[in-house]
Design a protein around this nucleic acid. Sequence first.
DNA 1: CGAAGCGTTCAGGTTGTGTTCAGGCACGCC
DNA 2: GGCGTGCCTGAACACAACCTGAACGCTTCG
Lengths: 222, 222
Amino acid sequence: MTIHRVLVVEDDHGLRDVLARGLREEQFEVLTAADGAGALRTIDDQIDAVVLDIGLPDSDGRDVCQAMRAAGLDMPVIFLTARDGLTSRLSGFSAGGDDYLAKPFHLAELAARVRAALRRAGREATTEVDGLLLDPVAHVLKTADGTQMPLTPTEFRLLASLMAAPGAVVRRHALVRSAWPEGAQVNDNTLDQYLRRLRRKLREAGCERGISTIRGVGYRFT
Amino acid sequence: MTIHRVLVVEDDHGLRDVLARGLREEQFEVLTAADGAGALRTIDDQIDAVVLDIGLPDSDGRDVCQAMRAAGLDMPVIFLTARDGLTSRLSGFSAGGDDYLAKPFHLAELAARVRAALRRAGREATTEVDGLLLDPVAHVLKTADGTQMPLTPTEFRLLASLMAAPGAVVRRHALVRSAWPEGAQVNDNTLDQYLRRLRRKLREAGCERGISTIRGVGYRFT
DNA sequence: CGAAGCGTTCAGGTTGTGTTCAGGCACGCC
DNA sequence: GGCGTGCCTGAACACAACCTGAACGCTTCG
């Protein structure tokens, strides 16, 4: 999993901490701000996404977003709204391909939305190894001859991890750590299956490179 | 294969933990610091490499690097820069750093870069004897003519132990201690078998050097 | 509702690694 | 030379690691 920088803007201290800690556990790098002014002070083009509470003490979250856009900052924004009603109004507004989430919500859902937004915005890093490239926007593997092979999210994370350091052995548990959420219990066989599917997709895409097994150690993309 | 000591300097707590844990799993000994001041307090000539965030709260990572150099510390530095900033790329190099890595990145890639930097700096994460090198990243034996010979984990540990001190005699029980877990009961003949297999693999790889027997004492890599 | 896609699990087969056994060769000592 | 010890060799074995094909539950989406 690649590491992204997320700014959380929320006035409630407790909630802000919960969000920050939760997103960190989901492998994000997290900055925080307590109000609109602080957000605009913190924000720059190194932020990959913003989680933005609509009801801020000093200003409306949407104004903050507009100020961002005016400053030429185009990263995705996930709005947090105080339950119901508002959401319908927001869906029409949806400025800049953003997303919204009504309180209360699950951390896992927020993390998923942030990821989805990053993907849509093309903020994921493209990995490329010798003509073979991994397109993070479309979640597709593109070969030199233009063939496109769709990948599932988990397949994508696994292959990205393998291609990040071509030729190097990646240990099994390192693969698990990079493709599954922190602390997930993953059956050995599950990983086997994914490698099997990845190898088949690579073969079907007519790719001469492949994943070799280093028995007792891990796998290597060659 | 000696263990290397890496200092990770990163202000974000979550990211720092992820990096530290990941590098430890890759067999590094990891120290951490949260800012430039802490880094300069921690650092000494026992550190083999530094992973240094450019954007630190109290100072620029490049200044930290320059301060290091001024103090006569010449270990390699891998800069972490916020997404593809070309400027930080260049100035990172002019500050005497060895490599850079743009966020977001994969752990496997960071580990590979740290190893590469150590190798370039002559701190040798890989064992090399006269064109024959044992590559722990790819987990293979590479000969001068480019042949790659895969090794099993135990073979790898044994050969590493022999190549660590070329020309010196390594006693049998010393070999056992370095290639098997502490307190393992190893049949004499088992070691014989491994030497046999190693010699054959060396021969098959077209290597003129070999392992000679010192009867009653041990073995020597010449 | 049904269909499709994704993640996961199960059962069974295959292979490589680590290990042991039986026997042979070579060296050193008497 | 006879003999023992240390090392080498070829073959065989057990078991874990890994691969494979098939199926199941779950969610999503039409």
